[in-house]
Amino acid sequence: MKIPFNKYNSGREEHSNVADVLDAEDLNQVSKLEDEFVSYIGAGYALATSHGTSALHLAMLALDLKRGDKVVCSVNAHPSLPEVVRHFDAEPIFIDIEPLNYNINLDLLETYLEDNQSKKLKAVIVTHIGGLSVDLDRLYSIAKIYNVKIVEDASEALGATFNGVKIGSTGADITCFNFSSHLKKNVCNGGMLVTDDDEIMERARLLSNHAIERDEDALEYIYDVVDIGNNYSMSELDAAYIRAQIKKQDKNLARQKEIASMYSGSLEGTAHITLPDMSNKEHPFSLFIVKVDKNRDSFALELKKVGVECGLHYIPLHLLTYYKAKYSLKINNFPKALQSYQQILSIPIYSSMDDKDVKFVCDKIKQIAKTRV
C-alpha cells in the first residue's frame, strides 16, 4: 500500500467541462471561472493567471514595484515569493515566524516597519501556511499605520476563512491563489489574482496581456502597447477543469478537517511527535504539519520506505544559497524558523483519502516512532 503526499481527484464534471472545450462547444471557460470565483470568494474582482507564481508576479507589476523597492515576507515561504520581488531588482526582507503556526510573526513585522519607515517599502506578502491565516484584523491595522500594501499568498487557503469571511475578501489589497501549489500538484496549472481595488485590477488586466490596448470598434489586429507587461493568461482547458474543482472545494475542506481530527485522535501521545493545535475551528488543514523531535529526515525516509510520502513547508529562505549569499544571511538570523525547520513534517491530507488510508498513515507513524531513541 502506498499513500502519496497528494492525489488529484477528478470526476464527471471535470471531464464534461474539458470535453466542451475540446469540442469547441464552450470556449468561455476563463471568463466563467473568474465570475464564479468572485461569487465564491466574495471579492470585487478576479483575474485568472497561468499559475500561482504568475499571479504573484502580476501583483508586483500592479503595485508598480521598482528597482530598489522593498517587500517584506516571512522567512518561511515558498521561493516564488522573494523570486518575484527579485525579478524587479527589488529587495525581499525576511521576518521570523510564529512557532506554533509557522506564519509570519506580527510582533516582529510591526517592529521592523516601525524601525524602517521608508517610501521604498512597498508591500508585505503574507503566506497562510496550511491555509491558516494570521490575525488579519491586526495585520490590516499595521498596514494602515505604516502605509504598506498587503498581498496575501493564499496558495493553501482556497475556501479558508477568517472570522467567517473567506480569504480573498477580508481586506487585503491583493490576494493570490494557486490551483497547483507546492508539492500538491494538480493535472492543471492556474492561479488567480483577487482584489477589491478598481485601479489595481485595471492595471493588472492591462499588464496581463502585454499591456495591449485595442479600440473595440477597430479591426481586431489593430492594437497599441502602452506599458511593459507580459502574458499571464490561463488556458481555457485549465479553466474548465478548475471550475469543476472549485464547486467541490467546501466539501473537500470539510473532509480535510475530518481527517485532521482523525490524525489528532490517533496520534495523540505518540512518542517524538508533536501535533498541530486543533483549537482554531477555522483551520482548513490544507496541510497537516507535525513535529518530529529528532532526525526528521530519517523519520521521513522510513515513512517513505513503508509507503507514506511526506512534504516540507518550507526550507527557510535564508538557508537557500542565492538569498544566503546575496544578503549575507547567517544560519541563526531567524532562530524560530530554523528550529521549526529542523522538526516539521507535512503528512498526507487530501479529501480523497479514505479512513483506511488515514489509519495506515497513523499506524506507520506510530510504528516508526517506537524505534526512535
Rank of each mutant, 00 (worst) to 15 (best):
L132K: 14
S133I: 04
S133V: 03
V134Y: 00
D135Q: 13
D135V: 07
D135E: 15
L136D: 00
L136I: 09
D137S: 14
D137Q: 12
R138G: 10
R138V: 12
R138Y: 14
L139G: 05
L139R: 04
Y140A: 00
Y140R: 00
Y140T: 02
Y140I: 00
S141P: 04
S141N: 13
S141L: 08
S141R: 14
I142S: 00
I142F: 01
A143L: 10
K144H: 07
I145C: 08
Y146N: 08
Y146I: 07
Y146S: 07
N147V: 03
V148N: 02
V148M: 06
V148F: 02
V148K: 01
K149R: 14
K149I: 00
I150L: 08
I150D: 06
I150H: 07
V151D: 08
E152W: 01
E152D: 10
E152A: 11
D153W: 04
D153Y: 04
A154V: 09
A154R: 11
S155N: 08
E156C: 11
E156P: 01
A157C: 11
A157S: 14
A157I: 09
A157N: 09
L158K: 06
L158V: 09
A160H: 02
A160P: 04
A160Y: 03
T161P: 02
F162W: 15
F162C: 15
F162H: 15
G164W: 09
G164T: 10
V165Q: 15
V165S: 12
K166G: 05
K166E: 08
I167N: 02
I167W: 04
I167A: 03
I167K: 04
I167H: 07
G168W: 12
S169E: 03
S169G: 15
T170A: 13
G171M: 10
G171P: 11
A172P: 08
A172R: 03
A172T: 05
D173L: 00
D173P: 01
